[in-house]
């Protein structure tokens, strides 16, 4: 009896495994939303930093700049982990190119991480021109990666 029970259970779970996609899609939904949330958080820090760098917000001791720069380093760390292969379906603008050129994608992320760290260093030194330059460097890294690996809206 127990053997039959196991056989039925195996067959039924096999049927689900064969269709497999719903469960996987659901998993990716969470991952996609998570990484989108992280990206939005990054965008928020970048938007805030741009106001500081352009001199629209007083930050004489660079405390605010440091807060945002450190947050960006933290948010960028290992973010490519949240791009599992196949997560280009559903509500996402991630391009399939990410997985076709994974090494380039990974390198682009590492570049962004390095530039965020360079920004933290510049902020600690406290020289406004160097901070602006480091910020521009990080912004260029964001733009380059989006240009290559993110689809435009409503593709």
């Amino acid at each position: 009896m127990r053997m039959r029970y196991i056989a039925i259970l195996t067959a039924v779970s096999g049927m689900f495994a064969a269709t497999g996609l719903p469960a996987q899609d659901e998993d990716f939904d969470g991952v996609i939303r998570y990484r989108q949330g992280v990206m939005k958080a990054q965008a928020g820090h970048m938007a805030a930093l741009s106001q500081i760098v352009r001199g629209h917000v007083p930050d004489p001791e660079h405390r605010l700049a440091e807060l945002h720069a450190r947050a960006l380093v933290g948010l960028l760390e290992d973010l490519d982990h949240w791009f599992p292969e196949g997560s280009d379906f559903g509500e996402t603008r991630a391009e399939a190119r990410i997985w076709e050129r994974w090494d380039d994608f990974h390198q682009a992320y590492e570049e962004a991480e390095d530039r965020a760290e360079a920004l933290v260093k510049a902020v600690k030194k406290g020289e406004s021109k160097a901070i602006a330059k480091a910020f521009k460097g990080l912004a260029d890294a964001c733009k380059a990666c989006h240009k290559d690996f993110r689809a435009e809206e409503e593709d």
Partner: peptide
């Protein structure tokens, strides 16, 4: 720079 006021980037 390609960055909009929300911190997003042109593509």
């Amino acid at each position: 720079t390609g960055m909009d006021p929300d911190g997003d980037f042109a593509g």
